[in-house]
């Protein structure tokens, strides 16, 4: 296991370098001069030259990249061109809000998808199965910004149950924090719930047709025991992959959901930075998101062997 993890991390290294090149090149392609973002209308040539020198923009692009990468590895992504706040600080200040929203969304998706998939697989081809399958298909087809707006319209403006947006820190008022968390977590978790339902249903159907399930039934085990002890456990592998990938989906969905619900996480920070052409922040957020996404995928791969001991993480897995 240890050797496998080390090998996987070594494979990740060249990918990380490529990712950093993509991020760097993309932000350098962004139209508009970053100097203008900082200085606005001021066009004193000396001030412009000094700032260009200070930001390292007078260096050749490859040199700029190496300098930037060196600092990024040390956790220094520079300062925001807008408010001079260090990017790392800006990201870590907003990370708890994103993590809270992400966890709530994953929890919502599991609470919906596991029962729906179970009903769907056990009552295969029934009306219940049809309804569950349709719900999951519709869920996949609704963009989270559309669902978010629909939820705001219904629950904030028509029934006036929840606030249309905003954030209260947990430490300040837990009740209000949770109340404000409901709509964004549903908007963010719905698509994941739909995908999870489809995958888990498919996996359960595969497992339910296996010989050991028939044997368990023949031994007189109750349907519930067969389902929970044998079927669900064996259907967990594809679900685990999907949950891992869904964390990534939740991460990207957060960019939109946080913007709609004025949730002060890294997604909202990134969208604002794109609008402001604040490229140190964009670079920092995009690179950190990509690294996080890769690590999640690695953790998912490793967790396979924990769920299913038959899977050994050998040389061929890399």
């Amino acid at each position: 296991m240890g050797r496998y993890i080390i090998r996987r991390l070594l494979v990740l290294l060249p990918v990380l370098v490529l990712v950093s090149i993509i991020v760097f090149v993309l932000t350098r392609l962004t139209p508009g001069d970053p100097i203008r973002t900082v200085l606005g209308e001021e066009d004193n040539p000396q001030t412009v030259a000094e700032l260009r020198d200070k930001l390292g923009l007078d260096q050749p692009i490859p040199v700029q990249y190496v300098l930037w990468l060196g600092r990024a590895v040390a956790g220094d992504f520079g300062k925001s061109l807008r408010d001079s706040q260090p990017v790392t600080q800006a990201v870590f200040e907003r990370l708890p809000a994103t993590i809270e929203l992400g966890l709530a969304a994953v929890l919502f998706s599991l609470l919906v998808s596991v029962p729906l998939a179970l009903i769907s697989a056990v009552k295969r081809n029934s009306i219940a199965d049809g309804i569950a399958t349709t719900i999951s298909l519709v869920g996949v087809s609704i963009p989270n910004f559309l669902l978010g707006i629909g939820l705001i319209l219904i629950f904030s403006y028509i029934f006036r149950i929840f606030s249309p947006g905003g954030y209260t820190p947990i430490g300040e008022d837990l009740g209000d924090n949770l109340k404000r968390l409901v709509l964004p977590s549903i908007a963010l978790g719905a698509a994941s719930a739909a995908v999870n339902t489809r995958q888990l249903r498919s996996a359960l159907l595969e497992v339910l047709s296996q010989d050991y399930i028939r044997t368990a039934r023949a031994k007189g085990q109750s349907s519930m025991k067969v389902l929970t002890k044998h079927a669900l456990k064996n259907a967990m592998i594809p679900l685990l992959t999907i949950i891992g990938l869904q964390i990534g989906t939740v991460l990207e969905g957060a960019f939109i959901t946080e913007t709609i619900f004025s949730w002060p996480g890294i997604g909202q920070l990134a969208v604002k930075s794109i609008g402001n052409r604040d490229y140190p922040v964009i670079q920092g957020v995009v690179l950190l998101s990509a690294v996080l996404y890769m690590l999640i995928n690695l953790i998912v791969d490793i967790s396979y062997s924990l769920v299913d001991p038959r899977i050994t993480l050998g040389q061929s897995d890399v």
Partner: peptide, 24 residues
């Protein structure tokens, strides 16, 4: 494969947002 891995390292919508933001 490494190039594809690098593209897959980004959440899809985030990559699309970043590219469009860069290109205009």
């Amino acid at each position: 494969s490494r190039f594809i891995d690098a593209l897959l390292a980004f959440p899809a919508i985030l990559l699309a947002i970043s590219i469009t933001a860069a290109l205009g």
